[in-house]
Simulated assay, not measured.
Amino acid sequence: MHGSDLSRWRLIFTPAMPRPVWKDLVRATLGGFAGIAVCAVFAWGANLSDVFPVFLIAPLGASAFLVFAVPNSPLAQPWSAVAGNTLAAVCGVAAAKFLDPAFAPAVGVAMAFAAMMFGRALHPPGGAVALLIALDPGLLERTGAVEICLNAGIMTAVLVGAGLAYHKLSGRKYPLRAGLAQGTAVGFSRLGLSKEELTDLLARFNQSANLGAVDLGRLLAAAEDEAIHHRFGDRTCGDVMTEITTAFGAGDPFHEIVRVFQQTDELAVPVLKEDGSIAGMVWQREVFNQLARTKSTRLILPAASAGKLMRPPDALFNADAPVGDAVVHMLRHGVQQVLIERNGVLKGRLTRSDILELALLSGGARKAA
């Protein structure tokens, strides 16, 4: 066997996943214990009351792994888990009840696959649920068809409920759709892609069952952030910033503010404290909006000073911070500029024009090289 063949087989039979993070390992392990323990206590309590007997089934262990170890997977979401196991139980019962025992297991599992896919409730443990029921026709006689199906749904729902509580306490997002709004703000708008477009992209590469559109958006946005940092290298905000030549004091009157904006093309002017630190920003549009609402600047109250008109700055970065950090912030929050300070004293501003100029210069340097 050639060396290349050995290398290929070595790659096939080596772990495909990275080493686990200890925090995730401990969280998943404790979660699996808690989930099955809650189900066991629930079954014990339900059997004591003799209202509706429920019992643990082996596939709950696989469901627990998905819910507690990989809660972001589409296969682990509440609908997938509860509906998937319930549909699979119905298919297993139907196969065991109406088919020859020799064919029931294979047909039951196949039916479960089709039912879960049709119901958009893919949940791998569902295959085990159908197989478990089809392998033991006597289970129908001992328990009852309806009871078996209800047991699968109820116990899975209890497990999912335990997962919801556990992940809320441990700080992990579950279910996936609970983080949809945040994912949209951070990922989708950043990328210029809608949730539907990301979903289509997953379907094109047959990854819909492994990853949700929200997580894909987050991953792509994170990759974009890394690319931005690589793009600008070790340049700092102080290297790229434009020095500020115009600033207000908190007591500057309104007519002085109007004069400054009329004579410059500034969109916003900082308001500085006596020690040179930033107090806030006065925006051109707000000043002109006030002018538009009055017939004369004389109607503006004397109290309308820079200190009264200012708003907090959108962002303040240290001059030694990587310029990539500022670019990511500007893209993520849709701001036109950020302010740069050093040792608490305002030094300059970083605008989108500065970033564009840096990008063009960097591109030209790479081309010349």
Rank of each mutant, 00 (worst) to 15 (best):
G92W: 00
E196N: 09
Q336N: 11
E224P: 10
A121D: 08
W22K: 14
V41W: 10
V51Q: 12
G233Y: 12
H329I: 14
L346Y: 04
A162T: 03
K295D: 13
D354A: 06
A62K: 05
L356R: 03
R349Y: 08
I257S: 01
G324Y: 03
L99H: 02
P125K: 03
E141A: 07
M111L: 10
M111D: 01
P59F: 10
G238V: 04
V146S: 12
F254I: 01
Q77T: 03
H229T: 06
A64P: 03
H167G: 03
L180G: 11
L267F: 15
V214L: 06
G45A: 12
V214R: 02
G280M: 04
P312Q: 13
C91D: 02
P175D: 08
L360V: 13
N85H: 09
V26R: 15
L301S: 13
V51M: 13
R19S: 14
L191K: 07
W22Q: 15
T242Y: 06
R293W: 14
L361R: 15
K367A: 15
L135H: 01
I257L: 00
C237E: 11
A165K: 03
V54R: 04
I355A: 03
G153W: 10
K168N: 10
G45S: 07
V271I: 08
I340E: 01
R218I: 14
I257E: 04
G138C: 00
A62H: 04
G163K: 05
R342P: 11
G238F: 06
A46C: 14
R172T: 12
A112R: 04
M330Y: 01
I228S: 06
G126F: 10
L56D: 05
L350E: 00
A145D: 11
V186R: 05
P15Y: 15
D320M: 14
E266P: 11
K173N: 14
A185K: 14
L75W: 03
F288W: 00
A88C: 07
S63E: 07
D239T: 07
F33W: 04
R259T: 06
L131K: 03
N289Y: 12
S80V: 08
N85E: 03
L198G: 02
R332F: 08
D200N: 12
V90C: 06
R8G: 08
I300R: 02
I148E: 04
A319F: 10
A69W: 00
D50H: 12
I300N: 06
L191M: 09
F68T: 00
L291V: 09
V160K: 01
H230A: 07
G217I: 09
V158F: 02
T184E: 13
L60S: 07
E357Y: 11
A69N: 01
A115Y: 05
V107K: 11
N85G: 11
V21T: 15
R120I: 02
P124Q: 07
A28L: 02
Y166I: 00
T236M: 14
G171Y: 14
V146E: 14
C91F: 00
L122H: 04
A221T: 09
G212P: 01
S277K: 00
E226D: 15
A102W: 01
A89I: 07
A89G: 09
F52I: 12
F52Y: 12
W283E: 13
S208L: 10
V269M: 04
